[in-house]
Simulated assay, not measured.
Amino acid sequence: MFRFLDPYRIHRHRKQIHVLRSSLALALTYTVITVFALPHSAWALVSTLMVMGNLPHIGGVLDKGAQRLLGTLLGAVLGLLLLCIPSPPPLLIPAATLAAIALAIHATFSSRFGYSSLIFGITLVMVVGDGNHDIAIALWRSFNVLIGTVIGITVTAVFLPQKATDQMRFLIADNLDKLSRLYHAHTNDKRYDDDDVQYMLKKITSQLVKQRGLIDAVHQEGRLKRGALSETLSLERRMISTVELLLETHWATRDGHDIIEHLEGLREEQYLLTTSLSTLAYQVKTGQNIDLRAKAFSLDTHAERAMGARSQSGRPLFSPAGYLWLNRELGRQTNAMITFLSNMQRLPSQRLQRRAKRHYLLSEEKPLPLPERDDQR
């Protein structure tokens, strides 16, 4: 019966599960407002739908729900205070409402609590209403917003819950796996379709953007902190740029390519770096402790030949040295990524470890073919 709580299964079918979860939350909200015959109950349904939206994970709904509750409470309190003013001048309440909403709109641009500011303005308008100044209506509207928000948060946390932390793990692991495959194909001089490579690079970039959007939700779940995640994603972005530069490497002459091909031990170092990237991806996705070390490129071994490279005509060649530097940078960045992830004490997950054996752990998309090593052909 615990197969339904499998994090890999939930992640794979997250869209369908979220549709079912949202429908269940709306049905539950409708049942509550119908059984208790709550006045102005449409606001409860709207709140449930707005809180859940397109957020299938707990952290996102908790963050959005907390901001909605905060904005609702502040907006309701201010609205009620305005309505309780005895014998106000004709334009006082509209003017004060407009000024508060203007400040809230300004806060949506300058604060992380932009959604709270927006809900504050909406709630304030909802409470003040069309000028009838009925406090009972204001209280019922605010109460319905709270009911809908609480139901949305509760259903997300209880019914087949998906963690934003798991989604972050899977996205990081999938990007590392794709970088490993692209780098391996490149270093083996494999002929591959440029459209497939561009599609994969576009997918990697898209998933990096998704990771940045998950930072607040992951922080809300209490396992990983914003600062550590931001630094990790910045390093991931630099790794993507380095691999992209390597893929775009072109040789002005055949001489530079031949020098690189005959550097003893270079291909072996590149293969070990590929293995480190794919192993790191596997450990992250399966919730294991990060326990490896990428072999650092030794530029000293190849420096003399690369720096003194010349063409057959005797012209100095600078491209071999630049190519070696890019490989060294990718190795250094990989070790830095290993260090960052190993320092996240709550990144490993026994829950993922227990379920990992039941699942294929590569990306859902068709991967770029991983070529054999030269000595295995």
Rank of each mutant, 00 (worst) to 15 (best):
V128R: 03
L98G: 03
P320G: 10
K178T: 08
S342F: 01
R355L: 10
L124V: 07
K357V: 12
T156Y: 04
L266A: 09
I101C: 11
T274H: 15
T29W: 01
E264D: 14
P89K: 05
Y183E: 09
L83T: 01
R267D: 15
L229A: 08
W140P: 02
A76D: 01
P89I: 05
L362C: 03
L160H: 09
L5T: 11
L78R: 06
T72F: 06
M344F: 02
L73C: 10
L317K: 05
S22E: 01
R354Q: 13
G71Q: 04
D194A: 13
P7K: 06
L98C: 07
F318S: 13
Y282M: 14
R238V: 08
V150I: 15
R305F: 01
E244P: 00
T34E: 07
L280A: 08
A27T: 11
R346Q: 14
T165I: 07
Q288R: 15
A42P: 00
L352Q: 04
D177W: 13
A136W: 10
E365S: 09
L26G: 03
E372T: 04
Q353C: 04
L266F: 07
T242W: 05
A107R: 12
Q162R: 10
Q353S: 05
V209Y: 08
P369R: 13
T339W: 10
S241D: 14
Q350F: 03
R191L: 14
E364C: 01
G65Y: 03
S180P: 00
V61L: 08
T253W: 01
E261H: 10
I33G: 01
A217R: 06
R310D: 01
R351D: 10
H57P: 00
V158W: 11
Q345M: 06
K366T: 14
I17S: 02
Q16M: 10
H257I: 07
F318H: 13
L28D: 04
S342W: 02
T31V: 13
I260K: 03
F159T: 07
D300E: 13
D194F: 08
L82T: 06
K210A: 13
